[in-house]
Computed example of a mutant assay.
Amino acid sequence: MSLDRRFFIGSIGTALIGMPMLGGAGSAWAEPDPRDLSVVSRGSKPASGRGGRPVQVSLEPIGASVLRIGSPVRFRASSNQAGFGHLYMVGTSGRVVMVVENLPLGRRRTVELPKPGLLIRATAPAGDNSVLFAASRDRLAGFAGNGTTTTPAEIQTGANGLLGELTARLSKLPRGSWGLTTVNIKVVE
């Protein structure tokens, strides 16, 4: 996928020339997943952020999930809780692009991504691409800081490190206060 002031998928983000680079942080798997089973004393209550139900998210392409090189794609994303959305793409080449971070989300409201004026477009090389969407009740100390970022930027973490590094960042938030999902997009000649 790449991004031409619109943007692209193939090597997700390969056409993002002049895009800022964001640094990554150490080991991706340093923090345990807060959704794992835990041993607690009898009578203690599970933590779930600000109370209520755990955050659940959804992400789906608008249109096909198999794209020819040059084809555009947009996504619908939502969360069952109000909070903030974070969208990342991992291309066939291993390049990682942050599309948005800390985008305000309404409870059970669907947003279309990327923002108006940008377009994700499939580019060479052909292959499998991953798109990750996370939502959190609280702002994430993300790759671009704590503010809302809607300007795509390449992240300097490998494709193998994104999921672990993102999970480590999310794990710093209260248990049950975030959710994560992935969609695969196949780019063909």
Rank of each mutant, 00 (worst) to 15 (best):
V66I: 13
G145T: 10
E112I: 13
L113D: 01
A135M: 11
E31T: 09
Q56D: 08
Q81R: 14
T181Y: 00
L173V: 09
D33V: 12
P54E: 12
T92G: 08
A77G: 03
A144G: 10
H86N: 15
A126Y: 01
Q81E: 13
I17K: 14
V99P: 00
I17T: 13
V99I: 15
V111A: 06
G147F: 07
P104C: 12
Q56V: 11
V99C: 09
L140G: 05
G164P: 00
P54C: 10
V96G: 01
S136F: 01
A144M: 09
G70V: 07
V100P: 00
S2Y: 05
D128I: 14
S48H: 09
G10W: 07
G142H: 04
T149D: 13
K115N: 10
L3P: 01
E165F: 00
G91Y: 00
S130R: 11
G23N: 13
V100D: 01
L3M: 14
S65K: 07
L180A: 06
A30P: 00
P20L: 12
L163C: 02
G164N: 01
L166R: 00
S136C: 11
T157A: 10
V66E: 13
F7M: 11
P116L: 07
V187C: 10
G117A: 10
L87C: 08
F75G: 01
G106W: 13
T148S: 11
G161P: 00
L119N: 11
G94N: 08
G158A: 09
P174N: 10
V97M: 12
S65H: 05
R137Q: 15
V66C: 07
E154N: 08
F8H: 09
A25F: 02
R68M: 09
I12A: 13
A64T: 12
L37R: 14
G49P: 01
V40Q: 11
L170F: 03
R169V: 04
E165T: 06
R107M: 11
S130D: 12
V90H: 02
S58Y: 02
K115Q: 13
D138Q: 12
G51M: 12
R137I: 09
D36P: 01
L173S: 08
K115W: 04
P46C: 07
V96K: 01
F8G: 09
G24H: 07
G179T: 02
S27D: 13
S58R: 05
S65I: 03
E112C: 06
R50D: 14
L59Q: 01
P125I: 14
S79Y: 03
L140S: 05
A141Q: 09
W178G: 03
R42Y: 06
G145M: 12
G176D: 05
I185F: 08
A47H: 10
R137P: 02
S48F: 11
M98A: 13
M21A: 15
T157M: 05
A28R: 03
S11P: 05
Q156A: 10
V100W: 00
R35G: 10
Q156Y: 02
Y88V: 02
A15N: 14
L16W: 06
G176V: 05
V90A: 08
I69V: 15
A28H: 03
G91V: 03
M89T: 11
G51V: 11
E31W: 08
